[in-house]
């Protein structure tokens, strides 16, 4: 975001804030390569909100699962403001479709997004240079420019963007009340969006199994992927943890990990909007979104449905039509 853009964003926030219970956005994180979700209630707090390629968190999750409580108990709650990137906005749509959020209770500030950074990719490229003392980082054209302790360095975006951003078809918010900044051109076409799934799918079965065994074996069952998912709605009643009834043994074997991840994915069939948060938060770098991408492709092929693009559409698993197309 340029200086003018951030000024425009702050102006929009300032205008909206008096009518809002709170505004969920991003604040600077512990260094220039991090941001963190924030809840602003005062103009002063709102003025500290930022938008940059490190605003990697999907705030639809925050607004749906841990919304800020009303400041004054007993009073009718006002709207909650939320800043969204393109991917975040699709989660909002899915949540509205399923009745978890009400459109009229939200004030959505849409922000066109040029992509978010995958810090591990960046660190792999930059190594020691960016470990500490980074002063600032911004997108300039097709590059990420970082002012580090040892001077300025530039990285091609395609080498440092998150995988989800490399395959993004919706960089511009799909639903919003106001838009901050000019729309950006989508990075990926329909085919390009599926090339990672293709790559895995084109592997011979034995190699494909070995791929998933190798990846999922690193899972530590911290459940960050599930908890970060805006659409995982069972929350504290997830079968991964309930003991009564008990479904999953506590062992750390591959089969337990497989079962968990495939249950997670199956519960998102026809619902996942591919925000990629499950993959982003994984401390073990497991490409878990791939499983959901495959399911989404099946949903698209069989039912001609794409989640999170229209509040009017009825998700395929929320309806029953004996003459279902494609089946």
């Amino acid at each position: 975001m340029t200086t003018t853009d951030i000024e425009q964003l702050h102006k929009l926030m300032e205008d909206a804030l008096p009518e809002l219970e709170a505004l969920i956005g991003w604040q600077p994180g512990y260094d220039a390569l991090h941001a963190a979700p924030a809840i602003a209630r005062t103009p002063e707090e709102a003025s500290r909100l930022v938008f940059n390629p490190f605003c990697i968190h999907n705030l639809a999750r925050t607004v749906a699962k841990t919304p800020p409580p009303p400041a004054k108990e007993g009073e009718a709650p006002k709207k909650i403001g939320v800043c969204v990137k393109g991917c975040d906005s699709r989660s909002i749509i899915a949540l509205i479709q399923e009745g978890f959020l009400k459109r009229e209770q939200l004030y959505i500030i849409g922000i066109p997004c040029k992509g978010t950074i995958d810090l591990r990719r960046l660190m792999k490229l930059a190594g020691e240079d960016l470990r500490a003392g980074v002063k600032s980082a911004r997108i300039e054209g097709d590059s990420l420019v970082v002012e580090g302790a040892k001077g300025s360095r530039s990285f091609p975006l395609e080498k440092v963007l998150a995988r989800r951003c490399m395959r993004c078809k919706y960089p511009n918010p799909v639903i919003y009340d106001v838009m901050a900044g000019d729309p950006v051109i989508p990075r990926a076409s329909e085919e390009e969006a599926h090339k990672d799934v293709d790559a895995v799918e084109n592997l011979p079965v034995a190699e494909r199994l070995a791929f998933w065994q190798g990846e999922l074996d690193r899972c530590i069952r911290c459940y960050a992927c599930r908890n970060a998912c805006p659409l995982c709605m069972c929350q504290d009643r997830c079968i991964a943890e309930t003991r009564d009834p008990k479904w999953l043994p506590q062992y750390m074997g591959l089969s337990e990990k497989f079962i968990f991840h495939f249950i997670h994915a199956m519960h998102l069939a026809g619902r996942c909007t591919e925000c990629g948060e499950c993959e982003r938060v994984c401390p073990q770098e497991i490409p878990v979104t791939l499983i959901k991408e495959k399911l989404n492709r099946i949903t698209k092929e069989l039912l001609d449905y794409e989640a999170g693009v229209s509040t009017e559409a009825v998700p395929p698993f929320l309806t029953f039509n004996p003459e279902e197309l494609g089946i």
């Binding site: 969920i24 963190a36 968190h57 530590i220 069952r221 911290c222 960050a224 908890n227 970060a228 401390p283």
Partner: peptide, 16 residues
Amino acid sequence: QSAIAGCISCGVCTFV
């Protein structure tokens, strides 16, 4: 609430 805005209640912090 303001200190942990965005906490998703996962186990990452404790496991690492």
